[in-house]
Write a protein that binds this DNA or RNA. Structure first.
Length: 109
DNA sequence: CTCTTGACTGAGG
DNA sequence: GCCTCAGCCAAGA
């Protein structure tokens, strides 16, 4: 049965919650795990609805490791603060050692 | 139904 | 390595 469209947001939230502590992933990685790697934008869009939920959206960045979505958080540097609190080094909205903290659901799961 | 927007990504110059 | 263009899909007006 195909219900991707209906559960797309929910799936994104689900995967986002599965992101382990001190790790980050990309929108494309989540989208790929959902079977729609072309819908990376939808993941970010879904994240927009994740505001106020248990979804650690701060652990989700674009494939460059850039905090493109930080503007959607309450504070201007809140997203960076949260990441640094988890041991992730972030400089100028750019995650350092991305290859070390990167977490791919399609591979880890 | 059509058009616009968007927390993206890959390919080309 | 950086900048630009095009493709992709879903939701809202």
């Amino acid at each position: 049965m195909k219900q991707e469209t209906l559960n797309f947001f929910d799936k994104v939230y689900e995967v986002a919650r599965l992101i382990p502590y001190g790790r980050v992933t990309s929108y494309g990685a989540i989208a790929n795990y959902l079977g729609a790697k072309r819908s990376a934008r939808m993941v970010g869009y879904a994240m927009n609805g994740s505001a106020g939920k248990d979804v650690p959206a701060h652990r989700v960045v674009n494939r460059k490791g850039l905090l493109t979505g930080k503007h959607h958080f309450d504070g201007t540097n809140l997203m960076q603060q949260l990441l640094e609190s988890e041991g992730i080094e972030v400089i100028e909205n750019q995650i350092q050692n991305l290859d070390k903290v990167y977490w791919d659901p399609a591979k880890e799961l």
